[in-house]
Nucleic acid binder design. Structure first.
Lengths: 119, 119
DNA sequence: CAAACAGTTGCATAACTTATTAAGTAATGA
DNA sequence: TCATTACTTAATAAGTTATGCAACTGTTTG
């Protein structure tokens, strides 16, 4: 257990490697990671992300889908943008938002997986 | 692209599968996931988790390591416990805390990985 | 059982978040 | 260029959350 080569490692070894990574967590890294988690930590923003998981949408579409006001949705997107969780693209009058990368997708799915586990 | 079998799928397909999962996010799932992320979204609590990544620790040890008061650390652990992010084990006078499972470890590492990406 | 140690809980205050309304910017079209 | 649509930003008011202190619970030891 605890070998350092990434090739051919068992799930247990994989976890051990992750733990080694975690040990190196300095204050700054904690702050940055917390910043991302904090923005993900709101049901309304998670719903926006859940919509965006289905594909690009403009602000009005998101607002209509969730039954929220435009400024409210815009504020939420601003926070998500701040942590690079979503990306922005203007097309004429509309601004389309999307999940920034597949990293974000994985992050959210992992959160859900943990949420699904009821002891 | 977008085949449904989990076996032999490319990274792109894998991401597509994750996106399909995300589409199913209902309000309840969003709330549960957000609850977990909210608790992770604090630098002080992330530092506690970073310590626990190195192995089990009792409350006094954590408090000493971070230079925080005992009640403060206890409150943080209570929140983490509430979302089953850490587990508790009593041994005599001491109560030892640990990361609840490797799922949590992955979650935190993914958050850090995203935090590390500076555009 | 009493004293000491290890943690937890409750409460009050300070700091932060979020939603709402109104005003401002940017792009299109008449 | 003036009006309209689409969105952002600002200001404020309401609600949350974190922290520190004091009191309490549970466990061991004398």
């Amino acid at each position: 257990m605890g070998q350092s080569t990434p090739l051919g490692c068992t799930p247990a070894d994989h976890t051990a490697n992750l733990v080694n990574l975690l040990k190196k967590l300095d204050k700054g890294a904690c702050q940055r990671a917390a910043g991302i988690f904090r923005v993900l930590g709101d049901p309304a923003r998670m719903q926006v992300l859940s919509l965006l998981a289905g594909g690009e949408m403009c602000v009005s579409e998101i607002a209509a889908a969730l039954g929220d006001s435009l400024p409210t949705v815009s504020q939420r997107l601003k926070l998500l943008r701040g942590e690079r969780i979503v990306s922005q693209r203007r097309a004429g009058k509309h601004i389309y938002y999307a999940l920034a990368d597949e990293h974000v997708v994985r992050l959210i799915v992992n959160g859900l997986a943990h949420a699904g586990e009821r002891k």
